[in-house]
């Protein structure tokens, strides 16, 4: 265990900015099992993530990730692997950077002008941030489902067919029909909408809309599906359906899900990563995180002491 000292963000932040890629263990010292009572001023951080952030044969691997919004640093030195066909849950209090981290996995942060991402991101050995890599192809391989259902103002069919059409996945009409049907089936929506495929997707209920968005995402056959709080705008019944769906999808896809609901993380994920104020505190098997977390920040969060 390291010597304890409280962090001083104001003095650390500028130096981290300059040496963002090589400061894995110089910034913050933390006593992970110390007995100082926790409050806003003396929150302690491990110098490196506790638990097992890395896996053998990862689908995606991220090293030394730092993300900035203008001058403000949102992510500090995160190292994380996402295994094949696993569901990894990213949890943490609001503003801890979990959504930012998720969005950097398929370069959705490119759409934010002030956002700057450092670090190495690999998808099966391909460098995601390689300037030669086509972001369009990347996003076809790493799909994303958003917090609020955002179906396009088109018909249900056209919503699902949108991606396959863009990427030329179907040559014939019936091939496209097949893709649409199988995607809707996988998303558990087929039986509810098969008679009204050509009605607007915006006319569906919230939970149906979100499953439509999932169908739309898996219609382009991605390898990884990123989900940014996919159930936060839904009622418990719709949430249960989505969670069941995530479980079914995990046999074919690698899934990273950001959630505010610890129960949801516990229910759907295999591994859980706990973020706190931009730092990745702990990564462990979900069961271990929710029964015997290694770090007391994690413990404090899952027992509801903050967040």
């Amino acid at each position: 265990m390291e010597t304890a000292s409280s962090i001083n963000d104001t003095s650390e932040a500028p130096s981290q900015k300059k040496t963002a890629s090589d400061n894995t263990n110089s910034t913050v010292k933390v006593n992970a099992t110390g007995s100082v009572p926790m409050n806003e001023t003396n929150i302690e951080y491990p110098d490196k993530t506790v638990g097992f952030p890395l896996v053998d044969d990862p689908k995606m691997s991220m090293r030394d990730v730092n993300v900035f919004y203008g001058d403000k640093q949102a992510i500090f030195d995160v190292n994380l692997d996402v295994g094949k066909n696993e569901v990894i849950a990213l949890i943490g209090p609001s503003g801890c950077g979990k959504s930012t981290f998720l969005r950097s996995l398929n370069r959705m942060n490119d759409t934010i002008d002030t956002c700057r991402v450092n670090g190495e991101f690999h998808l099966e050995g391909d460098n995601i941030y390689d300037p030669r890599l086509d972001v369009v192809e990347l996003r076809a391989r790493v799909g994303m489902v958003f917090q609020k259902p955002n179906p396009f103002p088109k018909s249900i069919y056209d919503n699902v067919a949108y991606g396959p059409r863009l990427h030329g996945l179907a040559n014939k009409r019936y091939e496209l029909d097949q893709i649409v049907e199988s995607s809707l089936r996988k998303a558990g929506l087929w039986d509810e909408v098969k008679d009204r495929l050509h009605q607007p997707g915006t006319g569906l209920s919230g939970g149906q809309q979100q499953r439509l968005c999932i169908a739309r995402t898996i219609a382009v056959s991605p390898e990884v599906v990123l989900m940014d709080e996919p159930c936060s705008a839904l009622d418990p019944i719709a949430t249960a359906k989505i969670e069941q769906l995530i479980d079914e999808l995990s046999s074919q896809y690698t899934i990273a899900i950001v959630t505010h609901s610890m129960q949801q993380a516990a229910r759907v994920s295999h591994r859980t990563a706990y973020f706190h104020l931009g730092r990745l505190i702990e990564v462990n098997d979900t069961r271990k995180v929710f029964t015997a977390p290694d770090h007391r920040l994690t413990e404090a969060y899952i027992t509801g002491r903050f967040g």
Binding site: N150, P151, Y162, L166, T217
Partner: peptide, 18 residues
């Protein structure tokens, strides 16, 4: 037009023009 529409389309691998 909500940004969610743009994000949704970009996340499917559409270019800005598409």
């Amino acid at each position: 037009v909500p940004n969610a529409m743009r994000d949704g389309s970009l996340a499917l691998g559409a270019t800005k023009s598409e």
